[in-house]
Design a binder for these strands. Structure first.
Lengths: 204, 204
DNA sequence: AAATTTATTAACCAATTGGTTAAACCATAT
DNA sequence: ATATGGTTTAACCAATTGGTTAATAAATTT
């Protein structure tokens, strides 16, 4: 039934779709282009995924399932806030280097269709802030952190880590850097961002 | 020649195009939809703006020209870094409340077509980091600020202020908030973000 | 007011696009 | 070998879309 080859047709399609959808978005992507990239007939896309919307959802869920564990490392890990900030900052930048289109793709498509998230919220791996809230409250109470709400801290962590990728073209232009220099700037952020955050929230 | 009415047709089109392009993006927007929103015939769009691309560019430049002065307030104003951070944070959040689609629109379209920025870079009002670099270096040297590069500081300021709008659907979902609560969270950031930044960079 | 220029419209067009269909292909079980 | 079921293809289709055109209406100039 299934070809025991390197990639069966279904995966071939999903991979091609991933590339096209992530670089052109749902509306910009063309079914023919996906078929071409996969090296198969366009009818096969419909044979395996029925229509564009379902193929897109398969790609989106796939992308989201890559991102979720990264965020859960901040929200649900047992180490201290300080350690988690340090680890997340380091890991996330490495992670995105491997999936450069990912944050933009997810953000863009969710803004186009926010209802999309509802389909994922029941997933038990869906990132949730509750545990993190208790931990922040605890560390604030213990005098480890200065008073801050978990929500604001989480937003700040996300912002400082994700934004440089999302807004890369703008930031490259405003800071007068070329691609190579910008890459170095991002590299420096692996430690700088953590320090920036810790500096601000840690009680002295 | 020109109607002295409230809005002439050209403006009518630009306004309608602004709404449609900003909510659906260049590829998602339909010329017919823009014409309908403007209450005119589709052929008029071509009469005034020749084609979709040129109409889009008019909208984009218009949006960009709204954003640029905001950023220049950080980069080129004469007040201290601390004051600029405080003012920008406050002003930017108010500004976006009036133009909610703007940051996403610009970021999305620039990622689709980064070459677009080249057309704007010659504009003298195009935000440039040079003056800000000197100022940061100066304040670091004077012991007002802890050592930090102007680029990283600028990226941090942008990230903390812009990201909560760009990633709103994601952040609402992860922080388990409804729209109203999120609005309040943003409101709190008018001062929280500035404190967060100052806390981190100011020498004690 | 006649002529001319500008603004506006309805109808049309060619190209693109997501999706369908019917036939062919191919591996496996009988 | 042949019947069977899933797989793949080429050709086709209806709808959408950006853009054009030729005729009309409304200003503006003469």
């Amino acid at each position: 039934m299934k070809k025991t080859k390197d990639e069966n047709t279904e995966e071939l399609i999903l991979n091609a779709a991933k590339h096209i959808f992530q670089s052109k978005g749902m509306v910009g992507a063309r079914m023919q282009e996906i078929a071409d990239k996969a090296g198969i007939n366009k009818a096969m896309l419909h044979y395996y995924y029925r229509n564009k919307q379902l193929l897109f959802e398969a790609v989106f869920k796939n992308a989201f399932s890559l991102l979720a564990p990264q965020l859960n490392a901040v929200l649900n890990d047992d180490s201290s806030i300080e350690d988690k900030v340090k680890n997340f900052t380091l890991n996330y930048i490495n992670f995105i280097a491997k999936h450069p289109y990912l944050p933009n793709f997810i953000i863009q498509e969710l803004n186009r269709n926010p209802g999309f998230l509802l389909k994922m919220k029941d997933n038990p791996a869906f990132p949730n802030i509750e545990k993190f809230k208790k931990q922040v409250a605890q560390e604030v109470e213990n005098g480890i952190l200065k008073p801050i709400s978990a929500e604001q801290l989480f937003i700040n962590i996300m912002a400082l880590n994700v934004f440089p990728f999302v807004a890369k073209p703008l930031l490259v232009a405003f800071t007068n850097t070329d691609d190579e220099t910008y890459k170095q700037l991002i590299e420096d952020r692996k430690t700088e961002v953590a320090d920036f955050i810790i500096n601000s929230i840690k009680h002295t």
